[in-house]
Amino acid sequence: MSGKKGSCGDAEQQCPAGRNEMTLDELPVGATATIVKVLSKTRGRKKFADVGLVPGQELLMEAHAPFGGLLRVKVMETSMALHRDDAANIVLKTGE
């Protein structure tokens, strides 16, 4: 589950969005995707890593909160709420 690398390697700039690549805040409700990388500029990157938001992990977008702000994501069988701004730093890959 570890060691998979995103298509844009470890370059620190924003990844050019590939065909199947998007960030977590763009993932529609009900869709699943796999984490490619968590940008290193992300605040609290370690906190996210500790709850399982690490490359290779699959997640499911469960819900968007009313009036913006929070996203509800299921990762490793646990529902986590996180902020849209932080989610924009998590790069995903959908489908195979």
């Binding site: 609290g44 646990t78 986590m80 709420a81």
Partner: peptide, 11 residues
């Protein structure tokens, strides 16, 4: 400032 990162479990 930005404060703490928001991450909350919904058990």
């Amino acid at each position: 400032g930005d404060g703490e990162v928001y991450l909350m479990e919904l058990p």
